[in-house]
């Protein structure tokens, strides 16, 4: 990472800490802000957060690894999360998953070569009555069929 990049990231995190308060309790909102802006929380960013909140870097890392919506490694531009919980599973999540994998040429847990999409399974999205359900970034899509899922993903930039 270039020094200039580091400095601007530090500045950005400083502003977030100012907004949420320099306390332990600000850890989650600060991490969410960084995740939103950068799609991941880099090693350097984690240490800066730790420094500014006066906690240990490993505690920041611990929190990031605990939550699926926080990442410590770079991901694709869009994150697709397909629900894998029982009702969605029973109503055909598996064929949707297969179709998506075939279309994108990568497996779940992987990112497409052009960095466009990262595929993940998620646990219950709360759409059990309308499964199979899928989350594309912040948006939920329900009652998926293989065709519908592929069509949605092809529209994702």
């Amino acid at each position: 990472m270039l020094v200039a990049e580091k400095n601007s990231l530090t500045e950005e995190i400083e502003k977030m800490v100012e907004k949420h308060g320099a306390t332990r309790a600000a850890l989650m909102p600060v991490l969410q802000d960084i995740q939103r802006n950068h799609k991941y929380v880099s090693e350097f960013a984690q240490q800066e957060v730790a420094r500014l909140l006066n906690i240990h870097p490993v505690e920041v890392y611990s929190v990031i690894t605990f939550y699926s919506f926080l990442n410590s490694e770079p991901r694709g531009r869009n994150i697709v999360r397909l629900c894998q919980t029982i009702t969605c599973d029973l109503i055909g999540k598996e064929i949707v998953a297969k179709a998506i994998e075939r279309e994108l040429g990568v497996k779940f847990g992987e990112t497409t070569k052009d960095n466009r999409i990262t595929l993940e399974f998620a646990n219950c999205l709360g759409m059990c009555d309308q499964g199979p359900a899928m989350l594309v970034n912040d948006k939920v899509y329900t009652k998926l069929t293989p065709e519908k899922a592929v069509e949605i993903l092809n529209k994702v930039k």
Binding site: H56, V58, E59
Partner: peptide, 25 residues
């Protein structure tokens, strides 16, 4: 490491059956 010695090397990472004690990154 965190309480007694204030060094902060070890914490639990990941969740559920994948939980393990690990270091930063």
């Amino acid at each position: 490491c965190i309480d007694l010695q204030e060094v902060g090397v070890l914490e639990s990472v990941n969740r559920g059956d994948k939980t393990m004690i690990s270091t930063f990154m």
